[in-house]
Design a protein around this nucleic acid. Structure first.
Lengths: 347, 347
DNA sequence: CTGAAAGCGCTTACAG
DNA sequence: CTGAAAGCGCTTACAG
């Protein structure tokens, strides 16, 4: 549309050098006379000057833009994360470019490339669960990467922000145990991810603490879908040793399980106790409102953006000051706590 | 992190000029000898060359990045739109920077500014419903803007993509009429938006066609929330002339209304027919699965990105070719059709 | 207090 | 077929 005015044109009109204009507009104008300053600001205002950040970035080597790579924004798990990221980023004056990969490694690599070319200052990355080994595009990547939700070993990764799934599952299972349930099943969504493994650990730990033996038949591994909740619940109802409670890997599973239980005339939580992992907050909409472990998704995004940007800025400081290799602000994995939300108490 | 190699360095190593390297790497290399070409590609590969798009953009005046401004990605209405936008954008080789405004005009203006500074090629904008009049930041904006979901008159706007709410409401109401319902209420979420007005028009039109007089008491205006659905349903049940069906402004309202009806021992749809406007696809999770008007949200984002990018590219073509004022690809409002999803048929 | 100059990494006429 | 040169809009030492 309209062409923007440049500092060169402002300089001409103000009868000063472009250096002076640049300094004034960047508030590095301690040494500039009040008169010049006013004149320049007036002209900038008049023509509605907007700086060309491309030109600036070319010199400063910072774009104040970060990338967010997630599987799918439509998956209700991710909007809160995305929102957390954007909130923190904009607090710091950063923008975020967001990318959907559908968990496809090819698309992940493509986006890492695109973001690198766009010179983003950093990337927040929720990678595919299939991504098992070190991968070229990550190794080659010239941009700092921070992992969320799922863990992954890689030297280019400057940090990780994940949910404390072990603790959450422990809380969920302990809650059921506290209410007197003893035959607690676990319907897992999958077991290949660190997420799922953490939850299994927590479940086992809670049982172990009370010296309740783990019944392998009580652990059903499938996928994070409503239909799987229905099926798994059906399987559990046909076990020789009847169950009295279920810890569900996520809330879609929980909804499915409840549907099945009701079909069979069982009441929740009077007959069968249920706690779900509240991936996507839907559980609160089904009846009976379900007791769940709330995932700190918003916090995850927020924290991730904070860590990433702090690292970015520290890296830059170090480069400017000492030109030596810099130490990261925080290199280790951050575990975010979950919360037990009791919506309807069992027994 | 690692510094990227530049075309200058490639040129040195290959013993050619940077112009040659640039041409080869940009596939404008028809005139370059096969040997030089191969040599250059080999070196680029070897050092894992990634172009600096800042530098390129500075010259070409295109960033291949568009902005997406929405109220809140956590609102389940928007992820599908965002996904549609990103899908189409990445098809065209564009990235998208996304921004949450919480419907605050101040934040909208801030983001329009930020995006302008970042030199995005265009902006897709779902503006606040409170934004009634022409507004400075939009007028001043140097970037083409395309509006989605909500309409707004402004000369800087190159187009609009909205849902055909009138048609949708007409379908919903007609469906209920076809099933024999005659006392059809309408629980609206609000009436200030063009969205809500369109729906009211469709409702009125359907009734008018069958020569059924509109009963003002049957139209309840509130907000797009579950609780309002509960309240409005309660009000409707106390009307002198009893209703036999409800058209709900969105699915949160529908869920609330159903909850109330059930509480009063009424069956849906046997006693009271219900059709909701399926803003957020949640309706399918409540029982009984609800008949709804499906919003083409994904399509809205997809179409919007397509129109915007086509306009951007046309604008550029025209500038290169004739340097004259260009005609927009499509300036008018695009109405996207809704779809009636019958999940449980009434009567 | 201010300016002249170099340069960020690239593209694009233009010349040969 | 290839190179020298100008320039995109800005920042940053350095000099005065």
């Amino acid at each position: 549309m309209k062409k923007s005015i440049t500092i060169k044109e402002i300089a001409e009109e103000a009868q000063v050098s472009i250096a002076t204009v640049s300094m004034v507009l960047n508030k590095k104008d301690k040494k500039i006379s009040e008169a010049t300053r006013k004149k320049i600001h007036a002209i900038a205002q008049k023509y509605n000057y907007t700086p060309n950040t491309m030109a600036r970035s070319l010199i400063t080597r910072q774009t104040r833009t970060i990338g967010l790579i997630i599987p799918d924004i439509v998956n209700p798990f991710f909007p809160e994360i995305a929102r957390g990221v954007e909130d923190k980023a904009s607090e710091f004056g950063y923008s975020v470019i967001y990318c959907n990969t559908d968990d496809k490694i090819k698309r992940e690599d493509k986006y890492i490339n695109v973001l690198t070319e766009k010179m983003v200052d950093g990337i927040i990355f929720a990678h595919s669960s299939d991504r098992q080994l070190g991968f070229d595009s990550l190794d080659k990547c010239k941009v700092p990467i921070l992992l969320i939700d799922r863990d992954y070993e890689n030297r280019n990764v400057i940090g990780r922000v994940v949910v404390d799934n072990r603790e959450g599952a422990y809380m969920a299972t302990s809650y059921l145990l506290d209410r007197g349930y003893r035959k607690i099943a676990y319907i897992a969504g999958s077991i290949t991810t660190t997420t799922a493994r953490g939850r299994l650990e927590g479940y086992n730990q809670a049982l172990a603490e009370r010296e309740i033996p783990v019944n392998e038949h009580y652990i059903k591994v499938g996928e994070y879908k409503l239909q799987w909740g229905v099926e798994a619940a059906d399987q559990l109802l046909h076990e020789k040793e009847p169950i009295d409670a279920i810890f569900c890997g996520n809330d879609l599973i929980a909804i499915g399980a409840i549907r099945k239980l009701k079909e069979c005339g069982l009441r929740v939580p009077e007959d069968i106790g249920i706690v779900g992992f509240d991936d996507i907050y839907l559980a609160s909409l089904v009846e009976p409102p379900l007791t769940t472990i709330k995932q700190p998704n918003y916090e995850m995004g927020y924290k991730a953006a904070e860590l990433l940007i702090k690292n970015i800025e520290k890296l830059r400081q170090d480069k400017i000051k000492h030109e030596n290799n810099s130490v990261l602000v925080e290199k280790n994995t951050v575990f975010l706590p979950t919360e037990l939300i009791v919506r309807r108490s069992a027994k």
